[in-house]
Nucleic acid binder design. Sequence first.
RNA 1: GCUGUUGUAGCUCAGUGGUAGAGCACUUCCUUGGUAAGGAAGAGGUCGAGAGUUCAAUCCUCUUCAACAGCUCCA
Length: 644
Amino acid sequence: MNVKISLPDGSVREYPQGVKGIEIASSISEGLARVALAIEVDGEIRDLARPIDNDASIKILTWNDKGGKSTFWHSSAHLMAEALEALYPGVKFGAGPAIENGFYYDVDLGGRAFGEDDLAALEAKMKEFAKKDSTFDRSSVSKAEALKYFTEKGDEYKIELINDLQDGTITFYKQGNFTDLCRGPHIPNTGFLKAIKLLNVAGAYWRNNQNNKMLTRIYGITFPKAKELEEYLHLLEEAKKRDHRKLGKELELFAFSERVGMGLPLWLPKGTLLRERLEQFLRRAQVKAGYDPVVTPHIGSKQLYVTSGHYEKYGKDSFQPIRTPDEGEEFLLKPMNCPHHCEIYRTKPRSYRDLPVRLAEFGTVYRYEMSGELHGLTRVRGFTQDDAHIFCRPDQVKEEFVKVIDLVLHVFNSLGFENFTAQVSLRDPENKAKYIGDDELWDRAEREIQEAADERGLKTVAVQGEAAFYGPKLDFMVKDAIGRSWQLGTIQVDYQLPNRFELEYVGSDNQKHRPVMIHRAPFGSLERFVAVLIEHCAGKFPLWLSPDQIAVLPISERFNDYAKIVYDKLKEQDIRGLLDDRDEKIGRKIRDAETKKIPYMLIVGEKEVAENKVAIRRQGQGDQGSVLLEEFVNSFKLECAAPV
RNA sequence: GCUGUUGUAGCUCAGUGGUAGAGCACUUCCUUGGUAAGGAAGAGGUCGAGAGUUCAAUCCUCUUCAACAGCUCCA
C-alpha cells in the first residue's frame, strides 16, 4: 500500500504507507533532512518520526518556517524542564510554550528562590543535556495512566491540565530522563539546540488568573547556530537604544518625578514642542474633516459618570472623588471626555440636518492604573487624548466610520507607521455581563465596524474580549522597539451612551430619534503616540517635528557674530534651533549636535562669512557642501512643511 | 496589585561594617581650532526614605517609596 504525498511545489510522490516525515525529507535531499525540524501534514504540524498513513499534502519545516521555529522553541522548553528537574528535584511544572521570540516554562520551585544568578547554572545544564542528542519520544497514554504518573510525581498542575483533557487524546513526550504531558510536536533530538540563552525570570499566575498561585516563569531563546544567537542579542541591544524612556531622557523630551507622582509625565520644553507640532497637524486635518474643537474641564461631577455608567464600572478602581469642603459635592478627575461631550450635544435641540456633529478636544484625562502597569509614556496615569465624538444618524454610521479610518490612515501615513495591525476588538462572548447594552445593538455595531474596515480594504484581526464596555472598537496596534504591541488609534461605535444621556435629534418625520456616537482618537494619546514615534525613528524625528531643526556652529569665536546673524535670520523664519558659540573646536560641536540628533548643522567659518554662505551638514550623512544662506532657507522651508 | 531584580554626583556606573570613587556633563582658565570627543584646574553626593542590629551602617535586618522585567489589568 502506498500513500500519495503532495509537496509544496505541487508535485506528488508515492511512499509506502507509514512513511515517516524524516524519510520523505531524506528522499528530497540529504541537506533538507539535516535541517528538518518538523513536518506539516494537511496543515497540522507533527514530529518527523510519526508515520503517515494516508494521502496528504505535506511541508517539511525548517528553521526558516514559523512552525519550525515554534517547534524548535517548544522543544527547548522541554530541555529547560529536564535541566530544571535535574537541578531542582521535586520541581513542579505548569505550562511551557513557545512564544513569538523564544519560549518559557512556568515552574513551581517549592518556595526556593530563583534569581538571575541561577539562570547561568540552568543554562549550563541545558547545554550539557543538549549535547546528549536525546530524542523526543512520543507516546499515547490513557487518562488514567497519565493521572497516575503525575499523581506519583506529585505535580498538581499537570493533573489539573490532564483533568481538562479528553481520554484518548493524551500524549507524553520523553527526552532523556524527563517525561512531560505534551501535545507536541517536537524536533527530532536535543542536539539541534546548539545556541541557548536564558533571558529572564518573572512571576506569572497559574493559568493566567490573578487568584491563583504565582509560578516562576523562566524565559529563554535558542537557535540552531551560535551566530544567530549573537545576532539576536545584538538586535536586543540595538532595540534598547531606541527605548523612548532612554531617548526621552537623553533628548530632554520628558521626565518623571517621584515628588509629582508616578505615571505623571512632565513634558520638557523640547518634548512640548514636538507634541504641539503633532497637535497642530491633527487640528488642521480635523478642521478639514469637519470637526468642531471644544474644551471641557478636567473634573466632572460624580453624577456625570454615574449617568455614563463609568462610575459603576470603574468607580472602585479610579482615583476617588474630590469633595468640596462646604457642600460635600463629589467630583471625579475625568477619565473620559465623552460624558462632557454628550452634555455639549445636549445644550440645544438638534435637527437631523445638523448631524453629524463632530466635537473634538485634546482632552487630558486621569486614570488610576495599577502601579505595576506604568511604563514610560506608553502607560501613564494622566494623558491627553486626541479625542472626538461624532454624533450621527444611524444611517450615517458607516460613512462616518470610514471617514475616520481615512483620517487615522492619513495620520499613520504622514508619520511613517506602516507596520500596524488593524484589530477589531469584540466583546467576550463568554462574559457578556462585563458589557452594557443589549445583544442586538452590539451585533449591529460589530457588523458595522467590520464592514467599514472591509470597505477600506483593511486587513483586520478580530480579538474577542478586547471591546470597551460600551461598544466594540477598531484599534490600530503598533509595536514598540522591544516588540511590545500598543494600541494607538482607536475608533468605537457606541449605541449606549446616547441612551444613557438621552440624546436626541428631530428627524425629517418631526419625531425624536436617538443619535449614534462614534468615539475616535487617531493618535490614541499624545503620550503613547510620542513614545512609539520616538522608538520608530530612534529619536531622529522628521524635520517638521524635530524640536531643534538646526544648529549653527561657528568654526571659532571669530565667527560668532556672523553665526548670530545667521541664527537670527533663521529664527525670523520660524526655524527652530540653537547657536553653539561655546569655546570648543568644530569637531566637538559637530559631535554634540550629531548626538542630539539635530537634523541640520550649519557650519560657518572664514569662507562662509566672505560669501554669505553656510556649510550644510546633515545629521548622520556628513558634509553636504556650502550654499547661500537664502538658498538654504528656501530649500529648508520646502522640506520642513508639515504633511497636510 | 502580584513575583523577582535594582536604587551611590545632572547622566552612565565602580566600591567598602570604620561617614565615598571613575568617565561624561557642569564652572573657570589656557587654547581660536574646518566636519563625531583639544588641555588643565575646580565644584558637585544625608550612598532612595524610615526604623533596627552594632562601639561604628552606604554596606547586615525589617518596613516603606520608586524604577526595571514579566503576570494580571487597561473607559
